[in-house]
């Protein structure tokens, strides 16, 4: 791949928690508009990769670049702010703020952090709620919504930051099977619109449909990566074969 036009670039990233080495040299580059799925057994460091990309976890070694921002050089929360504006994240446990309504959850950060005009943000929030098909739930509190609805609000909240990249961290893992579909539909639409997405997921079928590239991680390394057809139908590495044999 041409390195210069990559939007996100990880180079030999390492990270340890105490004595446990979670990432043992991760290199990955993602082009603008690309959808990349990261799959792999639990504990293989998938979520940690996402958290390093938007600076939630500082890395021990290597380099991370998002656009022109050198993530590994950022030290304070203040310096991270432009990065956070550019890279949004959706979590497994939704993590909506329980003390604000769905609409307020979406509006909070753009108004309070980015300092955007309140009226403009409100319009944007309503548009995003319509996009995730939750216009009728604008005034509901997170506690009054189902898991799938909360997750769609969380996606709208991430979009309200007008990011270039969205990181999805196992966003359907905590959901009921019947609500998984509504969330995946919302994500698929974003990918189709050309938003850059990195998804950690257990939904192999979804990964195959939506991703342009699939990376298989195991024990802190990217073992294999390529187009979904290649990874799923003709895996090269025995570890990939073993993993896919278990989950498919």
């Amino acid at each position: 791949m041409n390195r210069t036009n990559a939007l996100i670039e990880l180079d030999a990233v390492t990270k340890s928690f105490a004595s446990f080495e979670v990432l043992k040299g991760i290199s990955l580059s993602v082009k603008d508009g690309e959808a990349v799925c990261i799959i792999g057994p639990s504990g293989s460091g998938k979520s940690t990769i996402l958290r390093c990309i938007n600076g939630l976890i500082p890395i021990d070694g290597g380099r991370i670049r998002v656009g022109e921002i050198e993530v590994h050089k950022l030290r304070s929360e203040k310096e991270m702010r432009p990065l956070r504006h550019r890279v949004a994240m959706v979590f497994q446990q939704y993590n909506l703020f329980p003390h604000r309504t769905a609409l307020q959850n979406i509006m909070m950060a753009p108004v309070q952090v980015l300092g955007h005009d309140r009226r403009e943000v409100e319009e944007r929030a309503h548009r995003l709620l319509a996009k995730v098909r939750l216009s009728n739930k604008a005034d509901a509190y997170p506690g009054q919504l189902s898991g799938g609805q909360q997750q769609r609000v969380a996606i709208a909240r991430a979009l309200a930051m007008e990011p270039q990249v969205i990181l999805f961290d196992e966003v359907t893992a905590a959901l009921d099977p019947e609500t998984v579909k509504e969330v995946l539909t919302a994500i698929r639409e974003l990918v189709d619109e050309g938003l850059t997405c990195i998804l950690v997921t257990h939904e192999m079928k979804f990964a195959r449909e939506v991703a342009e590239r699939v990376c298989f991680t195991d024990h802190g390394r990217i073992v294999e990566s390529g187009p979904p057809a290649q990874i799923f139908d003709a895996p090269q590495d025995p570890r990939t074969r073993e993993f896919l044999g278990q989950v498919l």
Binding site: R51, E77, M80, R81, A88, F91
Partner: peptide, 18 residues
């Protein structure tokens, strides 16, 4: 407070004080 709530706030760009 669940640590995840804090993480969500950080990922939205909130400062420590915010």
């Amino acid at each position: 407070l669940p640590r995840s709530v804090n993480e969500a706030a950080r990922s939205l760009g909130y400062s420590r004080w915010g």
